[in-house]
Design a protein around this nucleic acid. Structure first.
Lengths: 322, 322
DNA sequence: ATCCTGCGGTCAGAATCTGACCGCAATGGG
DNA sequence: CCCATTGCGGTCAGATTCTGACCGCAGGAT
C-alpha cells in the first residue's frame, strides 16, 4: 500500500510535538519533497485540522485548535499519564465528567500495550482517593474499566459481589449502564440467573470476567438508568449543610478553603462565614481544626458534639504522648 | 485527494468505539466494499495496530493492544475528561508522571477547540488540589500549560511574578525546563533582562504570554535542571518523619489509612503503628484526629504541641458554639 | 534589494486504489 | 453432515492518485 496514510500520521505527530515547523524541516524528517509536504498539509486541512502557515524568514507551519479534535498521537509516558489522570477523574471526584472519563478510559485501556498497563498499575498505589476524607471504599479501576467495556460492547460479564452484609455471590449479568451517583458507581444490569434487573455497587465488585457472549439490549423498566438507581438505593446517604463562623480574616484563610471545599464569605475584617456540605461530620470536625483558628458552629447542631469528642480525644492523646 | 487516509482514521475510530465489528458492518458504515475493508484492516496492521479477526457466525474484527499506542480518536466529552484528569496529574499529586502529564497536557491543549477549552475551565473549580491538606497554593493550570508549551517550542515568554516578600515584577525569559520537586513546579530559565539564570515557582507566576520570538537553547550551569533547582532553593522545605501508635485494630482502620497516606503495621489486635511523612504538622494533627481513635505520638516530638493546641482550640470552639 | 519562507499549477511516469469475482477456510447451529 | 455466516487473499480492468521537478508568485525580516 502507499505510505501516504502512515506519513500523514507521522506529520500530525510532529506537528503535535513541537509547535513550529518549516516545510524543509518536515520534508527532511519525512523524506519527501517540499511540494509533497505542501500537499500533505492540505490533506490535514481537508481532514479538518487547521494548520496555520506563515511565509518569510521565521515562517513555517503550526497546528492549531480547530472545530474538532484531531487524533492524539501519544508517546508511552504521555499515555501512562493520561491513564492515571483518567483513573482519578473516573473515581468520581470531578462531577459532570465521570461517565466520559470511564468511556475514555475504556477506550484507552483497550489499546494500551501491556508493558504500559503494568506501569499504570504500578502507579495505582498513588491514585488519589475519590474525595479526601470521606473514608469510603475506593473503586478498583480495573473492575470499572472491565464493566465499562462490557456495557459498551454489549457483552455478558461475571463477577464476585460482596453485599453489605458480607455475603459473597458470583453473578452473571448483561450490563446495561454504569451510573455515577453520590460519588459512587452503580451498575444497572440484567441478572441472567435471576432473570431480573439488579443494581450493584462497583466498589463491592471484584473478579470481573468478560464472558465473550454478546446479548441484545433489553428495555429498562424505568425512564433512564440514573432514575432507576436513585429509586433502588435507600436514602442512607445523608448530606449535611454546614455553616461555621471562622474567627479570621478572609485573606488569612486564602489557600486553606478552596472553592470546591466550601464558600467563604467575609463578615468583617476579623471573621468569615464558611458554608459547605459533607457526609462525614467526623471529617468536617477535623477539617475545621486544621484552619488553625477558633470557630463557632452555626449549623448543624450535631457537629458540636463531634468537635467536642475530637477535642477530648486529642487532649487525651497529647497527654499520653508527653 | 483520496479518501483513504480519512477512511482509515474513521475505521480506527470505529474500532476504538466498540470492540467487535463484522466486515459487512464496517463496509456499510464506511460505504466501501467488504474487500476494501479487508485491505484497510491490513493497512492498520501494517501501521502496527493489531486487529484480531475471527471467522464464522460470531466472527468479526477487534482492535487489540499492540506494541505501541495507536492514535486516539476522541469525542468532545472524552477530550474534556482527559484534560481535567491531566490537570490533576500535572498538579504534582502523582509522583513520577508529573512531567509526562504536563507534556501531554501541552499537546492536548494545543489542539483543544476553544468551546471545549471553556468547558475545561468551567470544570476547573472542581480540580482537586495537589495534595489534600498541605495548604499550599495551587498552580494555575493555564500558566503551567503556557510555560510547558514555551519550553517545548523554545519560545520566549513574559509573565508577572510575585515573590515571597510580595514584590511583583514582570519578567521576560527563555524557558529552559520545568522541574517538579517536592510537589511544586519550578521553572528554570534564562532571564533576558538580568542576563542570568533564574528559578521561579510556577504557583507564583501569572499572566503568562508567549512572545512569539524563538531562542537558541543555552547550556545550563549545572548537571541538569533538577539539580539546579535543588541547589537554588533554600532548604525551607522540611519533611517530618512521623510515627504514631494508634489504639485500634488494623481492620477497623481499613479505609481510613490508604497506602499513599502512610504505612500501617499491626502491633497486636488492639493497636497499630502508623508511619508517614508530611510537611505540615498542623495537617497531620487534624488527620490523626479524624481516625476516631486514641493515639500516642512516638515521633516527632514537636507534633505533640500541635495536637495540644488543636485540642485546646476545638475545646474552646465547641463551648462557644453550645 | 536580498534571502528565506509558503503557495499552487502543470507535467510525465509510476504507483495505488476500487469493486467484482473467485475459491478457500473457520465457526456455530440444526 | 449441511448450511449460513464470517474472514481471507489473489486477480483483473479501469480509474484515480501520487510523486518530484519545474515554474512563477507572494509574504516577511533584515
Amino acid at each position: 500500500m502507499s505510505d501516504t496514510t502512515s506519513r500523514i500520521l507521522r506529520l500530525l505527530s510532529l506537528l503535535q510535538t513541537h509547535r513550529d515547523w518549516s516545510g524543509s524541516e518536515l520534508a527532511g524528517r519525512l523524506e519527501v519533497s517540499p511540494r509533497t509536504i505542501r500537499r500533505d498539509i492540505d490533506r490535514l486541512r481537508d481532514l479538518g485540522y487547521p494548520v496555520h502557515a506563515s511565509a518569510g524568514v521565521a515562517g513555517g507551519y503550526r497546528l492549531q485548535a480547530g472545530a474538532s479534535m484531531p487524533p492524539l498521537l501519544l508517546d508511552d509516558e504521555e499515555a501512562v499519564a493520561i491513564a492515571v489522570g483518567l483513573r482519578f477523574a473516573a473515581g468520581g471526584s470531578v462531577a459532570g465528567i465521570d461517565e466520559a472519563s470511564v468511556r475514555a478510559l475504556a477506550k484507552l485501556e483497550q489499546v494500551l500495550p501491556s508493558r504500559l498497563r503494568r506501569r499504570v498499575n504500578a502507579l495505582q498505589t498513588y491514585t488519589v482517593p475519590m474525595t479526601y476524607g470521606d473514608g469510603g471504599p475506593t473503586v478498583d479501576p480495573d473492575a470499572l474499566i472491565c464493566i465499562a467495556q462490557a456495557c459498551r460492547d454489549l457483552e455478558r460479564v461475571q463477577f464476585d459481589y460482596k453485599a453489605k452484609d458480607g455475603a459473597e455471590t458470583q453473578r452473571l449479568v448483561e450490563p446495561h449502564r454504569l451510573v455515577s451517583l453520590g460519588r459512587r458507581w452503580y451498575l444497572v444490569c440484567w441478572d441472567v440467573d435471576r432473570r431480573d434487573w439488579r443494581t450493584f455497587r462497583v466498589d463491592r465488585l471484584t473478579g470481573c470476567l468478560p464472558e465473550g457472549v454478546h446479548f441484545h439490549p433489553r428495555e429498562l423498566p424505568a425512564e433512564d438508568a440514573a432514575a432507576y438507581v436513585a429509586a433502588s438505593i435507600s436514602s442512607t446517604y445523608t448530606r449535611y449543610q454546614v455553616e461555621v463562623k471562622l474567627h479570621s480574616s478572609k485573606a488569612d484563610l486564602r489557600g486553606k478553603v478552596r472553592s470546591q471545599d466550601g464558600q467563604l464569605e467575609e463578615i468583617d475584617n476579623k471573621s468569615c462565614l464558611l458554608r459547605t456540605t459533607g457526609d462525614s461530620l467526623e471529617w468536617i470536625a477535623a477539617w475545621l481544626g486544621w484552619f488553625g483558628v477558633e470557630f463557632e458552629i452555626i449549623q448543624p447542631p450535631e457537629l458540636i458534639e463531634y468537635v467536642r469528642d475530637l477535642a477530648a480525644r486529642l487532649t487525651g492523646s497529647a497527654s499520653t504522648s508527653a
